[in-house]
C-alpha cells in the first residue's frame, strides 16, 4: 500500500516534466512597444560607458520554441528572405555568421527591425506588430546558434542547404561586419 502510494507520487512528479513551456498566444492587449535603451558603439562622452537598459522581454522570447518557430515563419512571410536570403545574405548582410554590424543582443536586433538601419534596412515600426518583431528577432538569433538548442526550430519543411537552427553550433558574436557590396551606395 505504502509502496504503491510512493510509486504513484513518483509518477505524478514525473508528469510535471511534461510541461515544456507556456505558449503565450495572446499578447498583452494594452501593453505598447517596450522601451529598450541600447548602445551601438562602446564610445560615449565622459568617463562612463554608454547607458543601456533592457526590459527583459527578450529572454522569454529566446527560450520559447513557439515564439522561435513563429519567428521563422514570419521571417519568410514578411520577405526578410528577399534581402537576407535564408540567412546567408544577399543584398542584406548574412545572419548566420558571427559578425554583427549593429549588435547581436535580441534588444539590438529588435531595435534594428523597428528603426531600420542605413544602406537599405527599412523600418518596420507600425508595419509589423511589436510582439512579432520580438519573435523575428529571436529567430534571427537562433540562425547563428545563439538560443538554447532545446527551443530552436529543429526541422525545415523544405530542402535547406544548412543544418536546422537547433543543430547550429553556437558562434560567439563579434562586433563589426560589413555591408555587402550589393547594398553599398554606388560610387
Amino acid at each position: 500500500m505504502k509502496r504503491s502510494a510512493l510509486l504513484l507520487l513518483l509518477l505524478l512528479a514525473a508528469a510535471a516534466g511534461c510541461q515544456r513551456e507556456e505558449r503565450d498566444y495572446r499578447p498583452n492587449p494594452v501593453a505598447s512597444e517596450t522601451r529598450e535603451t541600447i548602445a551601438l558603439s562602446p564610445l560615449s562622452p565622459g568617463a562612463n560607458e554608454p547607458v543601456t537598459a533592457t526590459s527583459g522581454k527578450g529572454r522569454d522570447y529566446e527560450n520559447n520554441a513557439y515564439h522561435l518557430s513563429q519567428g521563422k515563419k514570419l521571417f519568410t512571410w514578411f520577405n526578410c528572405t528577399g534581402c537576407h536570403g535564408n540567412g546567408g545574405g544577399g543584398s542584406g548582410p548574412p545572419l548566420i555568421d558571427d559578425r554583427w554590424i549593429y549588435g547581436a543582443s535580441i534588444e539590438q536586433i529588435v531595435s534594428t527591425i523597428r528603426e531600420g538601419r542605413p544602406n537599405g534596412m527599412p523600418s518596420f515600426r507600425g508595419r509589423i506588430p511589436d510582439d512579432q518583431i520580438w519573435e523575428i528577432a529571436a529567430f534571427v538569433r537562433s540562425m547563428s546558434g545563439n538560443v538554447p538548442a532545446s527551443a530552436a526550430p529543429n526541422r525545415n519543411d523544405d530542402m535547406h542547404p544548412g543544418p536546422a537552427e537547433s543543430r547550429k553550433s553556437p558562434s560567439q558574436p563579434i562586433a563589426g561586419g560589413t555591408t555587402p557590396p550589393a547594398a553599398a551606395m554606388p560610387k
Partner: peptide, 12 residues
Amino acid sequence: GIKPGVNMPMIK
C-alpha cells in the same frame, strides 16, 4: 480570444 493561436496578430 476567438481563435487562440491563430496567425492573425492582435493589433493595437
